[in-house]
């Protein structure tokens, strides 16, 4: 694959804030025309990585190219190829929705009339026409996100960065946002999004990079990633907590999982590649005399994915929090 077929090609990106290496040698390769998910907990370095790729932050080390253009040397060209929708709505609170879009259109070199026309079309498309002239202060979180995304699409950039596009949205609005993202890619755009939700990465992304404390700890398709952590999670609560070690050993024997189980109170949670195996496990537990108080099979949470890959949970330590959202 030559570099021009890659929308994003980053090698060894590093960004430090004081003593904190927020991004610590990240390599990424995003094929043009795909959706690429960057999955990780708060403070993993997702926003910092996106900011460097979008020319908002200068990398302290490594290099990155957008469609073959270096983000530092050719920043002006890169900015013409990307749209950025930030985690914190990057629209102007003091203006109305239409004024925002017209302003960005004018800044992108559109004539006043074209800027207005495209702004109106985008507002229609994102169901914001009724609120076009309303002050943004009265917008809901979902409306802001939609306007923010609309603003990123004015120039029809071939690459769109979405930083946690659905965090804080209700399920219905989240599904709408997913549809919009899929449509963008169907029309030929490349989308790189960050998310804290495994489900979201699974639903949308062609490939996923799992990022933790500034490093890529796993990379692959959703299926590859799930195979490594198990497609579902088995959660059991024992009648007698003294049986815990024996129960975990039984689960290792029958389910063949590696890594560590997660403990939440009395509950033991382990990844499981094949939900069908649970029958074998129950039989084995019975024969070993281990009694269950409760049992459920669920999709793995990000916490379990993280535990399985990194050996620690997704909750960041206080000093690992991202130093800046700039």
């Amino acid at each position: 694959m030559t570099s021009t077929e890659l929308a994003v090609d980053a090698t060894g990106l590093v960004k430090t804030f004081g003593t904190n290496r927020a991004v610590d040698g990240v390599d990424l390769a995003v094929r043009a025309g795909s959706i690429y998910g960057v999955l990780g907990p708060n403070g993993a370095g997702k926003t910092t990585t996106i900011s460097m790729l979008a020319t908002l932050l200068r990398p302290d080390g490594g290099s990155a190219r957008i469609f073959g253009h270096d983000v530092q040397r050719d920043a002006g060209i890169v900015r013409q190829l990307i749209g950025v929708t930030g985690q914190y709505a990057s629209v102007d609170d003091s203006l109305s929705a239409i004024e925002n879009l017209v302003l960005f259109g004018r800044l992108l070199g559109l004539s006043g009339r074209d800027a207005k026309r495209i702004a109106k079309n985008l507002l229609d498309e994102f169901s914001l026409s009724d609120a076009a002239t309303r002050p943004l202060k009265k917008f809901s979180g979902g409306m802001r996100r939609r306007l923010d995304l609309a603003a990123s699409l004015i120039a029809q950039p071939p690459l769109i960065f979405l930083d946690e596009p659905t965090t804080g949205l209700d399920p219905r609005t989240r599904n709408q946002m997913w549809d919009t993202i899929r449509r963008l890619v169907a029309n030929g755009s490349t989308v790189m999004l960050t998310t804290q939700y495994l489900d979201e990465a699974d639903q949308l992304a062609d490939r996923i990079a799992v990022i933790d404390t500034g490093r890529v700890v796993a990379e692959g398709t959703a299926d590859q990633l799930k195979a490594s952590v198990g497609a579902s999670a088995l959660q059991v609560t024992l009648t007698d907590a003294h049986d815990t070690d024996a129960a975990v050993q039984t689960m290792r024997d029958v389910l063949g999982f590696r890594g560590n189980p997660a403990f939440r109170g009395d509950q033991i949670s382990v990844p499981m590649a094949d939900a069908d195996r649970v029958t074998d496990l129950l039989v084995e537990l019975r024969s070993r005399g281990i009694h269950l108080a409760e049992m459920s099979v669920q999709k793995p949470t990000l916490d379990e994915v993280f535990l399985s890959i990194t050996g620690h949970g997704a909750e960041p330590a206080a000093d690992e929090l991202e130093g800046a959202h700039a």
Partner: peptide
């Protein structure tokens, strides 16, 4: 039916 559908990048996957 989307306006952006017709305004999308002309050649998908290639650097504009």
């Amino acid at each position: 039916s989307l306006d952006t559908a017709s305004r999308g990048p002309a050649s998908p996957g290639s650097p504009s």
